[in-house]
Nucleic acid binder design. Structure first.
Ligand SMILES: NC(=O)c1ccc[n+]([C@@H]2O[C@H](COP(=O)([O-])OP(=O)(O)OC[C@H]3O[C@@H](n4cnc5c(N)ncnc54)[C@H](O)[C@@H]3O)[C@@H](O)[C@H]2O)c1
Ligand SMILES: NC(=O)c1ccc[n+]([C@@H]2O[C@H](COP(=O)([O-])OP(=O)(O)OC[C@H]3O[C@@H](n4cnc5c(N)ncnc54)[C@H](O)[C@@H]3O)[C@@H](O)[C@H]2O)c1
Lengths: 205, 205
DNA sequence: TAATAAATGTGAAATTTGTAACAATAAAAT
DNA sequence: ATTTTATTGTTACAAATTTCACATTTATTA
C-alpha cells in the first residue's frame, strides 16, 4: 500500500463493493466505483495499482477478488471486540446499531457513570467504568467509542487508556490529550454541519 | 480567505476559542491553539494570516478579536434553520442535542415516515415528509440532516431536494446522486471506526 | 536603556495529493 | 481476421498543502 495515506478511500471502495455484490454484480469497473464513491476513476485505479490490486484491461475488476484483496489489507483475522463509553443520546444510538458485524467487529459492552443507564434493555451489558479493565481483558478489547459529555471526555479517555484502551473513536468536540501510543479518531458533527452551511452560503453570492 | 480549502480547520479553531473564552482566557497563542486542535502552530498562523487575521508579535492573538473575525467568515447573520429527516437511532440522538445554538443554527422540525415516531415527546415537532415543503418555506430551511436507512436514503434525499433542500448532512453510508447545485457532507461512522482499527493494527507489527 | 526572549509573519522548499495524457491490452464488432 | 472500442495501468505533470528557516516585532528583564 505504498504511498497511500487515504485509508478512508479504500474503505469506501470496500463499502461500495459490498453493496454491489449484494446487488448481484460480479464485475466492477473503475467508473462504476467512481459513481458509487464519488472518487475519480483514475484515482481509484491508481489506488488499486499502488496496493498491488490488478484488474483486467477492458475486463474491469472481479468483485470477489477486490473484496478479498481489501480484506487482506484491512481484514482483521479474528473479529475485533469494541466497547462503548457513554450511553446518552449518541451512545444509545450506537449501542442499537446493527452494522458492526459487516466490518468484522463486535460491540461487547457499554459503560456509563449513571447507574440508571445500566439496564438490561440492550443486547449488550452496561457496566460501571470500574469494570472496564475486567471486560477489556476478558474480551481482548483495545478500541472504544467515546460518547460522554465534553467536560468529562478528557478524564474519561485518560482512565480508559490506563485500562487497556489504545484506540478511541471520539464524539466529544475536544482534542484528547493522551500518550503517544494511543490513536484517536474524532467525529465532530457540528463542525461538519457548519462546513456544509458555509459552503452553501458561498454559492448564494 | 485566499487559498484555504480547509474550512474544517478554521471551524475547529473557532470551537477551541469558544472553550478557551469560557475558561476566561483573553489571549491565545498559536501554540495554545495548536494544543487544543492538534494543528501545527505554524499552520495556524498561516491560516490566520491568509484570512487577513493578524496577531501581535510576541503578544499573541486577542480571543474576542479572533472570534469576531471568524464570525465574519462563517457567521451567518441570521440564525440558520435546519430540519432532521429520520427519527431512528441516530435521529433521536440529534433531535435531543443541545449544541446547535452555539453554531447559530436552530433545529425547527423533524420528519419521519413512521407515524409512531411523530409524537410530541420532543422539543420540536415531528411531521410526515409531505409537510416538508410547507415547513421549509415557513422557516426558510435549506439545510437538512438525513438519518434514514441506507436503502431509502437516495429516494428520500431526492424528495428533499425537490422540496427546497440544498444542503444535506448525510449519515447513510451511500453516495447520494443529486443535482449539481446540492451540497452533501457525508458522515460515515463505520468507515471512521475501521480506519481507527486499521491504524492500530499497523502499529502492532 | 540595552539585551534578551518569545511571539508572529512569510517566502521558499518539501511533501503530498490528484489529474491528464496516453500506452497497453482485451473484448466486441465488423 | 481486422478493426474498433472500452478499459486498465503508468508516467509525467500540476496543484495543494504543509513544513522550514528565518526575518520582524514586541514584551520583559537586567
Ligand atoms: N447528541 C448529539 O447529537 C451530539 C451531536 C454532536 C456532538 N455530540 C457530542 O457527543 C457527546 C455525547 O453527546 P450526548 O448528547 O450523547 O450526551 P449525553 O449527555 O446525552 O450523554 C452522555 C452520557 O455519558 C455518561 N457519562 C458522563 N460522564 C461519564 C463518565 N465519566 N464515564 C462514563 N459515562 C459518563 C452520562 O451518564 C450520559 O449517559 C458529547 O460530547 C457531545 O458534545 C453529541
Ligand atoms: N445508529 C447508528 O449508530 C449508526 C451508525 C452508523 C451509520 N448509521 C446510519 O445512519 C442511518 C440511520 O441509522 P439508524 O440506526 O438511526 O436507523 P433506524 O432504522 O433506527 O432509523 C431510521 C428512521 O428513518 C425512518 N425512515 C425510513 N424511511 C424514511 C423515509 N423515506 N422518510 C422519512 N423517514 C424514514 C424510519 O421510520 C426510522 O425512524 C442509516 O443509514 C445507518 O446506516 C447509523
Amino acid at each position: 500500500m505504498t504511498g497511500i495515506v487515504q485509508t478512508k478511500r479504500l474503505l469506501s471502495y470496500r463499502m461500495a463493493l459490498l453493496r454491489l455484490k449484494k446487488m448481484g454484480l460480479k464485475k466492477a469497473y473503475s467508473h462504476t466505483l467512481s459513481e458509487e464513491t464519488g472518487v475519480s476513476a483514475v484515482l481509484i485505479r491508481k489506488d488499486f495499482s499502488q496496493c498491488g490490486i490488478r484488474g483486467k484491461r477492458r475486463g474491469g475488476y472481479d468483485v470477489d477478488y477486490l473484496l478479498d484483496e481489501l480484506k487482506k489489507l484491512f481484514g482483521r483475522e479474528k473479529e475485533q471486540n469494541v466497547v462503548l463509553v457513554g450511553l446518552g443520546n449518541i451512545g444509545s444510538a450506537l449501542i442499537k446499531y446493527e452494522g458492526y458485524r459487516q466490518s468484522n467487529m463486535n460491540l461487547v459492552a457499554a459503560f456509563d457513570i449513571d447507574p440508571a443507564k445500566r439496564t438490561r434493555r440492550y443486547s449488550v451489558p452496561v457496566y460501571s467504568l470500574e469494570n472496564l479493565r475486567e471486560v477489556a481483558d476478558a474480551f481482548d478489547v483495545s478500541v472504544a467509542i467515546l460518547a460522554v459529555p465534553e467536560f468529562s471526555a478528557q478524564e474519561t479517555a485518560h482512565y480508559m487508556v490506563e485500562n487497556g484502551i489504545r484506540g478511541i473513536l471520539n464524539f466529544a468536540p475536544v482534542l484528547l490529550k493522551l500518550p503517544g501510543h494511543v490513536l484517536v479518531n474524532n467525529i465532530n458533527i457540528m463542525v461538519e454541519m457548519e462546513r456544509l452551511m458555509y459552503h452553501i452560503g458561498i454559492r448564494e453570492k
